[in-house]
Simulated assay, not measured.
Amino acid sequence: MSLLTQLPVPSHFDRQRVGEVWRVPYQTRATEAKAWAKQYGIQPAERDQRQVGLLLIDVQNTFCIPEFELFVGGRSGLGAVEDNIRLCEFIYRNLGVISEIALTMDTHTATQIFHPVFWINEAGEHPAPMTMISLSDVETGVWKVNPAIAHHISGDNSDRLQIYALHYVQQLQQNGKYLLTIWPYHSMLGGIGHAIVSAVEEACFFHAMARDTQTHFEMKGDSPLTENYSVLKPEVAIDHEQQTIGETNHAFLQKLLRYDALIVAGQAKSHCVAWTVEDLLNEIQAIDPALAQKVYLLEDCSSPVVVPSVVDFTDDANKTYDRFAAAGMHRIQSTDAIDSWLKI
């Protein structure tokens, strides 16, 4: 069987359950995956002459299940569910091509700069989720740091924390980033929302068993003092006293650059996917711009943040992807014949 021959989707995959949370029957799937590999002649990943990586960004319940905190609905209203149906089928059909799957996991605790409890107004009220905090808002005191949280972030020094907060929004504006967005509490470490979507987890586990490889998990976003849309670096890395609060993830960056081809999907297209690819592209351009040609953006397996009547990042995401394509990256669809675009 040719390396690029697409396989059937195993019968255990149920499109109707992709938007639900359930327990993966690991031992059953492991047994089935071994039989599947034997039936279709799927070789261990270590034998691949060219290493193909699939980077899945934040495919977690908090972003992908409709009743969870930050469901990425896109303009269709069911974006992440539809994306993950296609993503699972893509993984199953291309088990013999994908050498390794790497999943990033947004990882948060309650008191972080983008959560409501971090901020208060003059009335002592916290900002509502999806509030955008601008530099002017902090300069004029519309929003200020909640002094009650200072004890476990800055050693009871609320004045220092307030100075840092001003520095933070200044840096966002200076670097052309999105305004500081106050998100609902989400991706909470230890919670159900933090977990990988069950259907995707099952597909990744089946892949690992069929190919005798290990799924890679990369955590991000646990610093209380910065957003971390990108898995490769924080939004702000240095505080107002020139102390490091976050660093470039050089180890994971090098891992991504070692693949002969890197396929990227996940949530949300406008935020964590866009900023991760942006940082990857910046590193590539500093090393060798031609390396951009080995990056493939699985566009129908990612959706932008859309909150009806509040905010719609669809156009921003599309413009960003246009720029990635202009730099040499490939925009692909999961339903495209893989031998029509994967150059290995």
Rank of each mutant, 00 (worst) to 15 (best):
D58W: 01
K269G: 02
A292K: 00
D279C: 12
L257G: 11
H115L: 03
A148M: 03
Q242V: 04
A268N: 03
D212I: 05
E283L: 01
N157V: 00
V59L: 06
G96A: 12
D336M: 15
E89N: 12
K319G: 06
S340L: 10
E100K: 09
Q51I: 13
A203T: 03
T104C: 01
V264A: 06
I182E: 01
G74C: 14
S340P: 01
N94I: 07
I57Y: 03
V18N: 03
N318C: 09
A165M: 09
E278P: 06
P184S: 08
E20M: 10
D212S: 10
Q170E: 15
L262G: 08
N94Y: 05
Y185N: 12
M130A: 11
A102I: 12
M188A: 01
L291T: 08
T276G: 06
L342I: 08
L280V: 11
G191C: 05
T131Q: 13
L56P: 05
F206T: 05
P8E: 11
S11K: 14
Q254T: 13
D83W: 07
V231W: 01
I113A: 04
Y296L: 00
F90S: 05
V97H: 08
S334Y: 07
F217D: 01
N249E: 12
R93L: 04
G176M: 08
S223N: 15
K233E: 14
M329F: 02
T181S: 11
F206M: 04
S187P: 01
M329H: 03
I332S: 04
G79P: 10
M209W: 00
Q171W: 04
N249V: 12
A150F: 07
I332N: 08
Y321H: 13
T140E: 13
I338L: 05
Q43G: 00
H271R: 05
I98C: 05
H250V: 14
G141I: 13
P44T: 02
P127Q: 13
Q214D: 10
A326N: 14
L232I: 12
H240V: 06
F71I: 09
T181D: 00
L55C: 07
D159I: 07
T28N: 07
S198G: 07
